[in-house]
Simulated assay, not measured.
Amino acid sequence: MARTTERTRQEAQAGDGAGMHLHMRTLHPPVPIPYLTKEEMTNTARAATARLPGTPAAKDLVFYGGLGALAVAGALEWPVALAVGGATWLVRSGRRQQKETHEGQEKRPRVPGGR
């Protein structure tokens, strides 16, 4: 070990810098990464939404709030989040309108032989 120290000192004094090394220790802590399956995600989402009040508005609030949080966090670009939110709103309002129209037609009594 003494010879190595002498040689390193001599090389450092030579001025070419070829013998100088900087040793750094790096820390690599174990970071467990959970593996999530589709079923686990679905079950977790169902359990979370089941605790909400029964109104569709509360579930919509969670959906749009999550979409906004993804956009703020940078996981989604804001134009994509806006497009997804707008398309979802259009589809849901169209379904609600169809459902209301369909329910209204079922309530009317049907006249035999007529419309």
Rank of each mutant, 00 (worst) to 15 (best):
G15V: 00
L22E: 10
T42V: 12
D16Y: 08
L36F: 09
W89Q: 09
R25P: 00
R46I: 14
R108V: 10
M41A: 15
K59T: 06
I33W: 05
A75G: 05
V91H: 08
R9K: 13
D16N: 14
H21S: 11
E103R: 14
R115A: 14
A14V: 08
V91L: 12
P32M: 10
L61P: 00
E103L: 15
G17Y: 02
M20W: 07
H28W: 11
G113M: 01
G86P: 01
V91A: 13
A87W: 05
G17W: 01
V62I: 06
T55N: 09
T37H: 02
E11M: 13
G17E: 03
Y64C: 02
F63T: 04
A47V: 02
G19T: 03
T37S: 13
E11C: 05
L67F: 00
K38E: 15
Q105R: 15
Q13S: 11
G54C: 01
R92L: 13
G86A: 03
P112W: 03
A45M: 11
P29L: 08
P109E: 14
T49K: 02
P32A: 13
A87M: 06
F63S: 00
E103V: 09
E11H: 09
G68D: 04
A48E: 12
G85L: 03
R115F: 13
G15H: 00
A81H: 02
P53K: 08
A47W: 02
A75Y: 06
P30M: 10
A14R: 15
T4C: 11
L22N: 08
A2G: 06
T101G: 14
K59I: 06
R110P: 01
L90C: 07
K38R: 11
E11G: 08
E77Q: 13
S93K: 15
K99A: 15
V80A: 14
G68W: 00
L67R: 00
R9N: 09
G94E: 06
A87Q: 10
V111W: 08
L22H: 09
K59R: 14
V72K: 07
G94M: 07
S93Q: 15
